[in-house]
Amino acid sequence: MFPFSYTNASSLQEALDHGQRGGRYIAGGTTLVDLMRETVERPDELVDISGLPLTEITMTPRGGLRIGALARMADVAAEPKVRNTYPVISQALELSASAQLRNMATIGGNIMQRTRCAYFRDVSADCNKRLPGSGCAALHGYNRTHAILGTSESCVCTHPSDLAVALAALEAVVHLVGPDGERDVALTDFLLLPGGTPHREHAVRPGELIAAVEIPAHPRPLRSGYLKVRDRQSYEFALTSAAVALHIRGGVIRAAKVAAGGVGTVPWKLTAVEDHLIGRRRSPQLWSAAADLATEGARPLDHNRFKIDLLKRTVERQLLIVGGTE
């Protein structure tokens, strides 16, 4: 671990002041400390924001849900407002990490967590994300767990968060506060495709801090759920996952919110799947036909070709689980 200074921010303003001068925000620390130990991350200054009052979970006047950035994963998963309105959020959280980690890690940190790519985490390997211009060892290396969607020659790693997949499906918005005030960015715009600059992972401006995530109101009733496929049954990242939320009236799908995880360089919103579902009557054939559109544009690597089939099947299964049949 490289030496660093540590400041415990007692107010939002104090945090922003330090952040503007290059301080790195730390809350649960479950990613950052890990990466500091591996010397992947070498911040000069840590600004501890875990004492700031950003933990509230509230229903918005319009019927959406606002989750404070410092709410802990475990608390959000257990919150009745979340469980009742967006089970997909609770399920994504509860299928993440371990109980111990969920007790520490926060919602903001979960979105900001960095990739699990083994080459990114091994400082002796080439990685454009860690060291721009050094190359991507995963592109022709061992890439079984890597992305098939949104990749570039520079980077093929996945965004590891399950929560972010559910949030992407539900078209969540990230509330940022910074030296120049507050602003909102859609989650799908907030997390950036790697392109030629994989070291740029998100739209945070210097000194900005995530204050909350807001899920807009969706038509009700909304059935939703999260399916995660992985080698072992707990405490592992997804090979593939699917977040599905459906509003069905009279057997016809009126609204569909679908995203996939474990397959994209960012949480992958499946708009083609959604479009295919809207206005159609639910049936096994529909789930299958819609799921076939999940892999549009997918580019497999040497060891992850199976993810193309697996993704389709994951989406199909979860459409069936959430949407059922007549």
């Binding site: 699990r116 083994a118 080459y119 091994d122 049954q233």
Partner: peptide, 13 residues
């Protein structure tokens, strides 16, 4: 590549 207990899988309960 997987010289750690996150990537080298052993069973959980």
């Amino acid at each position: 590549v997987n010289a750690n207990l996150a990537d080298y899988l052993v069973p959980v309960n």
